[in-house]
Protein backbone atom coordinates (compact mmCIF):
# COMPACT_ATOMS: atom_id res chain seq x y z
CA UNK A 1 0.00 0.00 0.00
CA UNK A 2 2.73 2.45 0.96
CA UNK A 3 6.16 3.02 -0.43
CA UNK A 4 8.50 0.41 1.06
CA UNK A 5 10.98 2.14 3.38
CA UNK A 6 14.49 0.69 3.52
CA UNK A 7 15.99 -0.66 6.75
CA UNK A 8 12.76 -1.40 8.62
CA UNK A 9 13.73 -5.04 9.11
CA UNK A 10 17.40 -5.20 8.22
CA UNK A 11 20.17 -2.99 9.56
CA UNK A 12 21.88 -0.35 7.50
CA UNK A 13 25.48 -1.58 7.23
CA UNK A 14 27.25 1.71 7.94
CA UNK A 15 25.15 2.66 10.97
CA UNK A 16 24.49 -0.85 12.28
CA UNK A 17 20.90 0.14 13.04
CA UNK A 18 17.41 -0.47 11.76
CA UNK A 19 15.10 2.56 11.68
CA UNK A 20 12.86 1.55 14.58
CA UNK A 21 15.74 1.10 16.98
CA UNK A 22 17.22 4.51 16.18
CA UNK A 23 13.79 6.13 16.35
CA UNK A 24 13.13 4.56 19.73
CA UNK A 25 16.47 5.69 21.14
CA UNK A 26 15.81 9.23 19.92
CA UNK A 27 12.44 9.10 21.62
CA UNK A 28 14.07 7.80 24.79
CA UNK A 29 16.56 10.67 24.69
CA UNK A 30 13.64 13.08 24.70
CA UNK A 31 12.07 11.06 27.52
CA UNK A 32 15.27 11.42 29.51
CA UNK A 33 14.90 15.19 29.15
CA UNK A 34 11.19 15.01 30.10
CA UNK A 35 11.66 12.96 33.26
CA UNK A 36 14.98 14.73 33.81
CA UNK A 37 13.19 18.09 33.90
CA UNK A 38 10.66 16.80 36.41
CA UNK A 39 13.40 15.22 38.48
CA UNK A 40 15.41 18.48 38.38
CA UNK A 41 12.28 20.35 39.48
CA UNK A 42 11.92 17.95 42.38
CA UNK A 43 15.51 18.59 43.45
CA UNK A 44 15.07 22.37 43.10
CA UNK A 45 11.84 22.39 45.11
CA UNK A 46 13.28 20.14 47.77
CA UNK A 47 16.52 22.10 48.04
CA UNK A 48 14.48 25.30 48.32
CA UNK A 49 12.08 23.95 50.96
CA UNK A 50 12.33 25.21 54.52
CA UNK A 51 14.14 22.98 56.97
CA UNK A 52 12.00 20.11 58.23
CA UNK A 53 8.92 20.88 56.15
CA UNK A 54 9.46 18.25 53.44
CA UNK A 55 7.02 15.37 54.00
CA UNK A 56 8.39 11.85 54.17
CA UNK A 57 7.25 8.51 55.47
CA UNK A 58 3.71 9.07 54.21
CA UNK A 59 3.88 6.46 51.46
CA UNK A 60 3.48 2.73 51.92
CA UNK A 61 7.02 1.41 51.57
CA UNK A 62 6.30 -2.34 51.49
CA UNK A 63 3.71 -1.79 48.77
CA UNK A 64 6.10 0.45 46.83
CA UNK A 65 8.87 -2.13 47.13
CA UNK A 66 6.51 -4.87 45.98
CA UNK A 67 5.55 -2.77 42.97
CA UNK A 68 9.24 -2.33 42.19
CA UNK A 69 9.64 -6.10 42.14
CA UNK A 70 6.58 -6.42 39.88
CA UNK A 71 8.08 -3.98 37.38
CA UNK A 72 11.51 -5.64 37.47
CA UNK A 73 9.88 -8.99 36.81
CA UNK A 74 8.07 -7.55 33.81
CA UNK A 75 11.36 -6.23 32.47
CA UNK A 76 12.84 -9.71 32.69
CA UNK A 77 9.87 -11.29 30.90
CA UNK A 78 10.11 -8.68 28.14
CA UNK A 79 13.79 -9.48 27.67
CA UNK A 80 13.07 -13.22 27.71
CA UNK A 81 10.25 -12.86 25.20
CA UNK A 82 12.69 -11.22 22.82
CA UNK A 83 15.11 -14.12 23.28
CA UNK A 84 12.23 -16.49 22.51
CA UNK A 85 11.54 -14.65 19.26
CA UNK A 86 15.22 -14.78 18.34
CA UNK A 87 14.96 -18.54 18.83
CA UNK A 88 11.84 -18.49 16.60
CA UNK A 89 9.70 -19.79 19.47
CA UNK A 90 6.50 -17.79 19.16
CA UNK A 91 4.58 -19.73 21.80
CA UNK A 92 7.28 -19.12 24.39
CA UNK A 93 7.29 -15.43 23.47
CA UNK A 94 3.53 -15.28 23.97
CA UNK A 95 3.74 -16.88 27.41
CA UNK A 96 6.36 -14.38 28.54
CA UNK A 97 4.33 -11.46 27.22
CA UNK A 98 1.24 -12.66 29.10
CA UNK A 99 3.29 -12.37 32.28
CA UNK A 100 4.45 -8.91 31.21
CA UNK A 101 0.89 -7.72 30.69
CA UNK A 102 -0.19 -9.26 33.98
CA UNK A 103 2.64 -7.41 35.73
CA UNK A 104 1.65 -4.15 34.06
CA UNK A 105 -1.94 -4.60 35.21
CA UNK A 106 -0.81 -5.48 38.73
CA UNK A 107 1.46 -2.44 38.88
CA UNK A 108 -1.27 -0.06 37.75
CA UNK A 109 -3.86 -1.65 40.04
CA UNK A 110 -1.60 -1.34 43.06
CA UNK A 111 -0.73 2.23 42.11
CA UNK A 112 -4.42 3.12 41.83
CA UNK A 113 -5.04 1.64 45.27
CA UNK A 114 -2.13 3.64 46.69
CA UNK A 115 -3.54 6.81 45.16
CA UNK A 116 -6.98 6.27 46.63
CA UNK A 117 -5.43 5.69 50.07
CA UNK A 118 -3.81 9.13 49.85
CA UNK A 119 -7.00 10.85 48.76
CA UNK A 120 -8.65 10.04 52.09
CA UNK A 121 -5.66 10.75 54.33
CA UNK A 122 -5.67 14.31 55.69
CA UNK A 123 -3.50 16.95 57.19
CA UNK A 124 -5.17 19.73 59.18
CA UNK A 125 -3.26 22.91 59.95
CA UNK A 126 -4.42 24.51 63.20
CA UNK A 127 -5.12 28.17 63.84
CA UNK A 128 -3.86 27.81 67.43
CA UNK A 129 -1.32 25.10 68.21
CA UNK A 130 -2.25 22.27 70.57
CA UNK A 131 -0.11 21.25 73.50
CA UNK A 132 1.02 17.66 73.76
CA UNK A 133 0.55 17.72 77.51
CA UNK A 134 -3.19 18.18 77.01
CA UNK A 135 -3.35 15.80 74.05
CA UNK A 136 -1.23 12.70 74.63
CA UNK A 137 -2.55 11.19 71.40
CA UNK A 138 -0.49 13.82 69.57
CA UNK A 139 2.80 12.76 71.18
CA UNK A 140 4.07 11.51 67.84
CA UNK A 141 3.29 14.87 66.25
CA UNK A 142 5.61 16.99 68.35
CA UNK A 143 9.03 17.67 66.92
CA UNK A 144 11.80 16.66 69.28
CA UNK A 145 12.17 19.17 72.09
CA UNK A 146 8.87 20.93 71.37
CA UNK A 147 5.48 20.49 72.96
CA UNK A 148 3.29 22.41 70.53
CA UNK A 149 1.65 20.79 67.53
CA UNK A 150 0.80 23.00 64.56
CA UNK A 151 -0.83 20.46 62.33
CA UNK A 152 -2.44 17.06 62.73
CA UNK A 153 -2.20 14.31 60.18
CA UNK A 154 -4.56 11.34 60.10
CA UNK A 155 -7.90 9.99 58.98
CA UNK A 156 -11.00 12.13 59.37
CA UNK A 157 -14.13 10.30 60.40
CA UNK A 158 -16.75 10.27 57.65
CA UNK A 159 -14.61 12.31 55.27
CA UNK A 160 -14.81 11.70 51.57
CA UNK A 161 -11.97 12.31 49.16
CA UNK A 162 -10.34 15.63 48.57
CA UNK A 163 -12.14 17.70 51.19
CA UNK A 164 -10.85 21.19 51.80
CA UNK A 165 -11.65 23.90 54.34
CA UNK A 166 -13.95 25.47 51.75
CA UNK A 167 -15.96 22.31 51.30
CA UNK A 168 -16.36 21.99 55.09
CA UNK A 169 -17.63 25.55 55.33
CA UNK A 170 -19.93 25.13 52.37
CA UNK A 171 -21.56 22.04 53.89
CA UNK A 172 -21.95 23.82 57.26
CA UNK A 173 -19.90 21.32 59.23
CA UNK A 174 -18.92 22.64 62.69
CA UNK A 175 -16.20 20.23 63.65
CA UNK A 176 -14.28 17.21 62.46
CA UNK A 177 -13.06 14.10 64.23
CA UNK A 178 -9.58 13.06 63.23
CA UNK A 179 -7.67 9.91 64.17
CA UNK A 180 -4.07 11.10 64.29
CA UNK A 181 -1.32 9.01 62.75
CA UNK A 182 1.36 7.66 65.03
CA UNK A 183 3.87 10.21 63.75
CA UNK A 184 3.90 13.53 61.98
CA UNK A 185 6.32 13.88 59.09
CA UNK A 186 8.02 16.79 60.78
CA UNK A 187 9.43 14.26 63.19
CA UNK A 188 12.47 12.94 61.32
CA UNK A 189 12.76 9.31 60.20
CA UNK A 190 15.59 8.59 62.62
CA UNK A 191 13.72 10.16 65.49
CA UNK A 192 10.59 8.16 64.59
CA UNK A 193 12.63 4.98 64.75
CA UNK A 194 13.95 5.84 68.19
CA UNK A 195 10.53 6.72 69.56
CA UNK A 196 8.97 3.54 68.09
CA UNK A 197 11.54 1.44 69.90
CA UNK A 198 10.96 3.29 73.13
CA UNK A 199 7.21 2.89 72.80
CA UNK A 200 7.51 -0.83 72.12
CA UNK A 201 9.66 -1.25 75.18
CA UNK A 202 7.17 0.73 77.23
CA UNK A 203 4.27 -1.34 75.91
CA UNK A 204 5.93 -4.59 76.94
CA UNK A 205 5.99 -3.48 80.54
CA UNK A 206 2.54 -1.88 80.44
CA UNK A 207 -0.77 -3.69 80.20
CA UNK A 208 -2.52 -3.88 76.85
CA UNK A 209 -5.46 -1.84 78.13
CA UNK A 210 -3.71 1.49 77.59
CA UNK A 211 -2.97 0.71 74.01
CA UNK A 212 -6.06 2.22 72.36
CA UNK A 213 -5.16 5.62 73.71
CA UNK A 214 -2.76 6.59 70.95
CA UNK A 215 -5.36 6.23 68.24
CA UNK A 216 -8.39 7.83 69.82
CA UNK A 217 -10.10 10.55 67.84
CA UNK A 218 -9.44 14.22 68.29
CA UNK A 219 -12.20 16.76 67.75
CA UNK A 220 -11.26 19.97 65.98
CA UNK A 221 -13.77 22.76 65.46
CA UNK A 222 -13.80 24.08 61.89
CA UNK A 223 -13.15 27.60 63.20
CA UNK A 224 -9.81 26.31 64.49
CA UNK A 225 -8.74 25.02 61.07
CA UNK A 226 -6.38 27.23 59.14
CA UNK A 227 -6.07 24.91 56.16
CA UNK A 228 -6.94 21.35 55.38
CA UNK A 229 -5.86 19.07 52.60
CA UNK A 230 -5.89 15.41 51.77
CA UNK A 231 -2.56 13.99 50.63
CA UNK A 232 -3.22 15.23 47.08
CA UNK A 233 -1.14 17.50 44.80
CA UNK A 234 -2.49 20.55 46.60
CA UNK A 235 -1.12 19.28 49.93
CA UNK A 236 2.49 20.24 49.30
CA UNK A 237 5.06 20.46 46.57
CA UNK A 238 6.17 16.99 47.68
CA UNK A 239 2.82 15.42 46.85
CA UNK A 240 2.52 17.58 43.75
CA UNK A 241 5.81 16.09 42.56
CA UNK A 242 4.84 12.61 43.68
CA UNK A 243 1.55 12.58 41.79
CA UNK A 244 2.97 14.26 38.70
CA UNK A 245 5.96 11.94 38.42
CA UNK A 246 4.18 8.70 39.27
CA UNK A 247 1.13 9.73 37.23
CA UNK A 248 3.24 10.38 34.17
CA UNK A 249 5.15 7.17 34.82
CA UNK A 250 1.88 5.28 35.16
CA UNK A 251 0.75 6.64 31.80
CA UNK A 252 3.99 5.31 30.32
CA UNK A 253 3.34 1.88 31.82
CA UNK A 254 -0.14 1.96 30.35
CA UNK A 255 1.17 3.07 26.96
CA UNK A 256 3.83 0.37 26.91
CA UNK A 257 1.30 -2.30 27.90
CA UNK A 258 -1.06 -1.19 25.13
CA UNK A 259 1.78 -1.32 22.62
CA UNK A 260 2.77 -4.84 23.73
CA UNK A 261 -0.85 -5.99 23.61
CA UNK A 262 -1.22 -4.54 20.13
CA UNK A 263 1.88 -6.33 18.90
CA UNK A 264 0.76 -9.54 20.61
CA UNK A 265 -2.75 -9.71 19.10
CA UNK A 266 -3.67 -7.55 16.07
CA UNK A 267 -0.01 -7.15 15.08
CA UNK A 268 0.82 -10.87 15.20
CA UNK A 269 0.14 -11.26 11.47
CA UNK A 270 3.50 -9.62 10.86
CA UNK A 271 5.28 -12.59 12.46
CA UNK A 272 4.29 -14.75 9.51
CA UNK A 273 5.05 -12.24 6.79
CA UNK A 274 8.18 -10.55 8.17
CA UNK A 275 9.47 -12.18 11.38
CA UNK A 276 12.54 -9.97 11.56
CA UNK A 277 10.49 -6.80 11.52
CA UNK A 278 8.19 -8.32 14.15
CA UNK A 279 11.17 -9.11 16.39
CA UNK A 280 12.42 -5.57 15.85
CA UNK A 281 9.07 -4.16 16.95
CA UNK A 282 9.24 -6.22 20.14
CA UNK A 283 12.84 -5.13 20.74
CA UNK A 284 12.08 -1.42 20.21
CA UNK A 285 8.99 -1.53 22.43
CA UNK A 286 11.08 -3.49 24.90
CA UNK A 287 13.61 -0.65 24.99
CA UNK A 288 10.76 1.65 25.95
CA UNK A 289 9.61 -0.77 28.63
CA UNK A 290 13.07 -1.08 30.16
CA UNK A 291 13.34 2.69 30.19
CA UNK A 292 10.06 2.94 32.09
CA UNK A 293 11.44 0.38 34.53
CA UNK A 294 14.64 2.40 34.81
CA UNK A 295 12.70 5.56 35.66
CA UNK A 296 10.90 3.69 38.43
CA UNK A 297 14.21 2.43 39.80
CA UNK A 298 14.98 6.09 40.57
CA UNK A 299 11.46 7.17 41.51
CA UNK A 300 11.03 4.53 44.19
CA UNK A 301 13.91 5.54 46.49
CA UNK A 302 13.56 9.25 45.70
CA UNK A 303 9.84 9.51 46.45
CA UNK A 304 9.30 6.72 48.98
CA UNK A 305 12.49 6.59 50.98
CA UNK A 306 14.32 9.90 50.99
Amino acid sequence: MDIPIPYTSTVRPDTGLYNGKLGMWLFLASEIMLFGALFSSYVLLRAGADEGTWPHGLLNIPIGAFNTLVLITSSLTVAMSWVALKASNFQRYRRFQFVTLACAAAFLGIKAWEYSEKFSHYEVWLATPLDVAAHPELAGHAVDGQTEVYSVIGHIEGAGRGWTLNSLQESNIDSIQIHPDQFHYRVGAREQGKRSKAEKAAQKSKSAADHGDAHSALTIPVSEIKRMSALVPAHSTYFATYFTLTGLHGLHVLGGAIAFAWILWPGAKLWNSDPERYTNAVEATGLFWHFVDLVWIFLFPVLYLL
Binding site: V78, H290, L294, F298, F300, P301, V302, L305, L306
Partner: peptide
Protein backbone atom coordinates in the same frame (compact mmCIF):
# COMPACT_ATOMS: atom_id res chain seq x y z
CA UNK B 1 20.03 5.16 47.86
CA UNK B 2 21.12 6.89 44.66
CA UNK B 3 24.22 4.70 44.37
CA UNK B 4 22.14 1.53 44.53
CA UNK B 5 19.65 3.02 42.06
CA UNK B 6 22.48 3.96 39.71
CA UNK B 7 23.89 0.43 39.79
CA UNK B 8 20.47 -1.04 39.08
CA UNK B 9 19.85 1.45 36.29
CA UNK B 10 23.25 0.76 34.76
CA UNK B 11 22.49 -2.98 34.70
CA UNK B 12 19.13 -2.42 33.01
CA UNK B 13 20.64 -0.06 30.46
CA UNK B 14 23.72 -2.15 29.72
CA UNK B 15 22.17 -5.60 29.50
CA UNK B 16 18.39 -5.36 29.03
CA UNK B 17 18.74 -2.41 26.66
Amino acid sequence: ALLIAAIKAACVAAIFM
